[in-house]
């Protein structure tokens, strides 16, 4: 691999990693509250399409284009869209105590379906060229610091990304801090580990579950937005986000429920995903086979963690279980 290619490879890996990082950071918060949200791919898709909806109406409105306004609008739309989707999951699993796996899978179907539906609708209204594209907004999302280019290799490796890359890392670091170092984080972990104990200690279990899952959904949704606006430069494509959604869920396991590990994990996953074309002389077949690695690595981590049976690395103890006080 030549030097330029190496740098391009790193850049590609990091660009993709932001989507995975945001997706999995959201899922980590959710899982820490004891909710296994398999609707994450759907939530990411709904966040992404909501951003596209915002972009469509903004560009259509005839208001002179302003990159910052375009970011604010798409960002706000993505948050609302992801939140609404997540609320369905919350209401069903927390209030109505439905099975989390089934609800999550149905939510993925729902989120992917609705994003494809709206995507096609917008695509149709924009002339039906096959993709709904908003190049200006893509530019806005991918804008780098003006001096990044002048800093040579350092600038290329560390400063050549849109703001969402840095935002993702900041969110992950903040979430890691909140979970491990604050009272709220302590209470949240207690809810996911042992809701009955948390309840007895005076913690409002349902409120924590709702808040954590909704916040997690919003962050995951931003992951979807990041993909469509930054990585795909504001081009909408149907059915693209579910694989990244599942990769984000895998990354949660890989990172043993720690967002700070997820920062590095997401870059590794991103690298494994994009490495194919960068290895010279690698056939198409082998490139395809390399895409298996993120999943295989995740499985290996999952199995090793269960064999070592170290308490700190286990999934939250009551993950996937509904809590009903009178069932103690």
């Amino acid at each position: 691999m030549s030097f330029e290619m190496l740098i391009a490879f790193i850049q590609q890996s990091v660009r993709l990693s932001s989507t995975l990082l945001l997706g999995s950071t959201g899922e980590i918060i959710t899982e820490k509250s004891g909710n296994l949200n398999l609707g994450t791919p759907g939530i990411m898709a709904s966040g992404a399409i909501s951003g596209i909806i915002g972009a469509y109406f903004y560009t259509k409105s005839g208001i002179p284009f302003n990159p910052i306004v375009s970011i604010l609008i798409t960002f706000g739309c993505a948050i609302i869209g992801a939140l609404l989707t997540t609320l369905i999951y919350c209401f069903l699993t927390i209030t109505l105590k439905t099975n989390q796996n089934v609800t999550g899978l149905a939510l993925t179907t729902f989120g992917i379906g609705i994003s494809n539906f709206i995507g096609s609708l917008i695509n149709g209204k924009m002339g039906g060229t096959g993709i709904a594209a908003f190049p200006e907004i893509g530019e806005a999302y991918r804008a780098t610091l003006p001096f990044a280019d002048k800093l040579g290799v350092f600038g290329k490796i560390f400063l050549s990304y849109g703001f969402m890359t840095y935002l993702g890392i900041i969110i992950a670091v903040i979430v890691a801090f909140v979970i491990t170092k604050t009272r709220v984080g302590l209470n949240l972990r207690a809810v996911g580990e042992n809701p009955a104990t948390a309840d007895a200690a005076g913690i409002n279990v349902n409120r924590y579950k709702y808040t954590a899952t909704c916040l997690g959904g919003i962050i995951s949704g931003l992951g979807g937005l990041c993909y469509v606006m930054d990585f795909a430069a504001a081009n909408w494509q149907n059915n693209i986000l579910d694989q990244f959604g599942w990769l984000a869920v895998a990354l949660v396991i890989f990172a043993v429920w720690r967002p700070n590990i997820a920062v590095f994990g997401s870059i590794i996953f991103g690298a494994l995903y994009v490495i194919g074309p960068f290895i010279l002389g690698l056939s198409n077949k082998s490139q395809e086979l390399i895409k298996i690695l993120p999943y295989l690595v995740t499985i290996v981590v999952l199995v090793i963690v269960s064999i070592r049976d170290k308490k700190e690395n286990q999934p939250p103890q009551s993950l996937g279980l509904a809590y009903f006080r009178e069932e103690r």
Partner: peptide, 11 residues
Amino acid sequence: FKLVDVFSAAE
């Protein structure tokens, strides 16, 4: 006992 296993005593 009502304790969270993976927490420290202080937590």
